[in-house]
Nucleic acid binder design. Structure first.
Length: 602
RNA sequence: GCUGUCAUAGCUCAGUUGGCUAGAGCAGUUGAUUUGUAAUCAACAGGCCCGGGGUUCAAAUCCUCGUGACAGCACCA
């Protein structure tokens, strides 16, 4: 097999360039290695542009890079392009590929390039960002594109690709700029891999929490209720209640006190906190008796008022308040996404009021708490330290101190993290905990925010050793982030097959005939006594049908009872995965369920 | 909010180029059947075809404005 490029000084160099510069190195062949796919997908992006240019001659092109999930090309044309046009474009791409055009490369000066592309304002915009005096042009057939490469030697090598998505994208990723058309695609070296990739996407779609939430009756949305306002159905309600109660105990063990602030507070308070100025357009307001109230978008102000209710001594610190706080935020319609992004949600929110000296210990304690919960659910997560954003309150000095405090806490305990420059909250830097969903998208769940500003703005204080007034530090933190998003991610993670301790229903009971219903009810009551929910499938359907229906709810355990079981006080257990059956005595069964429910402790 | 696609029964979907009373499966109700491990049979019921406005002899179908959903962009205290 011939090489498609070489690796020189850890850089992929295409053959066009290597030949000219006389570079040598390890050969890269057309396979599904990262290096090979990088070149293949980049050239496929060019082939896409070539096809677009031939179908829409007025098209202007911006950039066409490879990305984690394939490649895309951003362009602009006066014609309207819809998703239905993707097939047509794919066909055109194939017909070009069949012509096996060579991809050649030549270099011209920046001035020449600007003349060459003078009618293409998008290419001119690209050139604005290139510091060099010369640029390279890649040519295949009649089509030429300004590009750094690397590329395949011939477009005939492109055979197994698919255009996947069509959408808009702002020029340069800035919503102030014009919007271009973006087409996403994927390419592989062989047919099998392409097919496997499409199958993988289809499998991921099957565990989409919106689909499972509907099937499993966890939650729903209704047009007449409003976008982004979830409705929790009984099964979802039970799951959520289990999570709440586990987490409640975990907080109590760690010294948190449950509190509760009002759903809406006078706007003056939001002005003091800075939310009014910074996020006012995303808040819900109402006027009553000529007083304006803001529905809370966060719980911190409520907790500050709890803190202010009495005088505090340094001996009392840290003070930790927690609340399952319902918040409302008016998100853009286009941002709404199932339970992942909603306009009303409940945070597992807490605020720690502490001294400057306690910051590090408190941060570490919270990070441990996070790890305990994430590892229980076997989630992969990563932590990002986010620094001062453009919209920010407080002095640079305070920002430096607090950002450094967060990093120190992480560094001293050798906890790995990435930096998100400018990603902090307006009142302070933060550590975000991000979990990956079924198709590889990352979602922020937990957050730990260090705040010197709100204590200042609300003039919070405690009495120090010398009876002097000292300002406390606030740590805002949420572990799940919100019950909505976290349950959405849990659903995808387990593909709806929740473990016993969190499942909406622990046991499905199927009595064989009407005469066994009484025993079924007896079992069900005993299950409630040990904190387990069960459902009895006694409808007038065939036994097979009822077993099938129960299995389809993804309940973790299925028990069948008939004459033998009633007589011997036993249950027949059916394993959902293996379809194997075995019998247990009633006591054994109940203690098994109890063990499984209690095996998790945060 | 932006670009594109879409909206028919509780759910999943049919419904030809505008043309008779808008269909199916599942779920639901009522019978019959009482079942030993993944769909018993039958009958019934269920619709302002997302909402408003328009074009037309005629609109689920075409146009328009909303609302909501999907993909991505931008946003995410």
């Amino acid at each position: 097999m011939n090489a498609i490029a070489i690796k020189h000084n850890d850089e992929i160099i295409d053959l066009q360039t290597a030949e000219k510069l006389g570079f040598e190195g390890e050969q890269i062949h057309l396979d599904n290695s990262d290096d090979s796919l990088e070149v293949l997908r980049h050239s496929t992006a060019h082939l896409l542009a070539q096809a677009i240019k031939s179908l829409y001659p007025d098209a202007k092109f911006y950039v066409g890079p490879t990305v984690k999930e394939g490649f895309y090309y951003d362009f602009k044309t006066e014609s309207e392009i819809g998703e239905g046009d993707l097939k047509k474009i794919e066909k055109q791409m194939l017909s070009f590929a069949k012509k096996k055009y060579e991809i050649s490369k030549y270099e011209i000066s920046m001035d020449e390039a600007k003349t060459k592309f003078k009618d293409d304002h998008l290419k001119l915009a690209v050139m604005e960002r290139i510091p060099s005096d010369t640029v390279s042009i890649y040519k295949q057939g009649e089509f030429e594109d300004l590009c750094r490469g690397p590329h395949l030697p011939n477009i005939g090598l492109i055979r197994y690709f698919k255009l996947t998505k069509l959408s808009g994208a702002y020029l340069g990723g800035d919503s102030k700029n014009e919007m271009l058309t973006r087409i996403y695609g994927i390419a592989f070296a062989d047919k099998e891999s392409l097919k496997d990739h499409m199958t993988m996407l289809a499998e991921a779609a099957k565990r989409d929490h919106r689909k499972l939430g509907n099937e499993m009756k966890l939650f729903t949305f209704r047009e007449e209720v409003g976008a982004g306002f979830p409705i929790w159905l009984p099964a979802g309600g039970r799951l959520r209640a289990r999570l709440e109660s586990l987490l409640f105990k975990a907080h109590r063990k760690r010294g948190y006190e449950p509190v509760r602030g009002p759903e809406m507070l006078r706007s003056d308070l939001w002005k003091t906190s800075g939310h009014y100025q910074n996020y006012g357009e995303n808040m819900y307001f109402t006027n009553i008796d000529e007083v304006e109230f803001g529905v809370k978008p966060m719980n911190c102000v409520g907790h500050i008022k709890v803190y202010e209710d009495e005088l505090h001594s340094y001996r009392d610190l840290p003070i930790k308040y927690f609340e399952y706080g319902v918040v409302h935020r008016h998100e853009f319609t286009g941002a709404l996404h199932g339970l992942f992004r909603v306009r009303e949600f409940t945070q597992d929110d807490a605020h720690i009021f502490c001294t400057a000296e306690q910051i590090e210990d408190q941060i570490i304690e919270v990070v441990d708490f996070v790890d305990k919960i994430m590892s229980t659910f076997e989630f992969d997560y990563k932590m990002m330290v986010s620094t001062k954003p453009e919209k920010a309150v407080g002095s640079d000095e305070v920002w430096d101190i607090s950002t450094q405090a967060l990093k120190n806490a992480m560094d001293k305990n050798s906890l790995p993290y990435e930096i998100d420059e400018g990603g902090g909250a307006f009142y302070g830097p933060k550590i975000d905990i991000k979990i990956t969903d079924a198709i590889g998208r990352e979602w922020q769940c937990g957050t730990i925010q260090l705040d010197f500003n709100l204590p200042e703005r609300f003039a919070l204080e405690y009495n120090g050793e010398d009876n002097d007034k000292i300002q406390p530090v606030m740590i805002h933190r949420a572990i799940l982030g919100s019950f909505e998003r976290f349950i959405g991610i849990l659903t995808e993670h387990f593909a709806g097959e929740f473990p016993m301790f969190i499942a909406p229903t622990q046991v499905a009971i199927v009595p064989i005939a009407d005469t066994h219903k009484e025993y079924a009810k007896e079992l069900s009551d005993k299950l409630i006594d040990i904190g387990a929910d069960s459902e009895i499938y006694s409808k007038n359907d065939s036994l097979n049908k009822r077993i099938r229906t129960a299995e389809k709810t993804r309940v973790p355990m299925l028990v069948i009872i008939g004459d033998e079981e009633v007589e011997g006080k036993t249950v027949a257990i059916r394993d959902r995965r293996t379809r194997e059956q075995y019998n247990l005595s009633e006591e054994e069964f109940l203690s098994l369920i109890q063990t499984k429910i209690n095996e998790v402790n945060f």
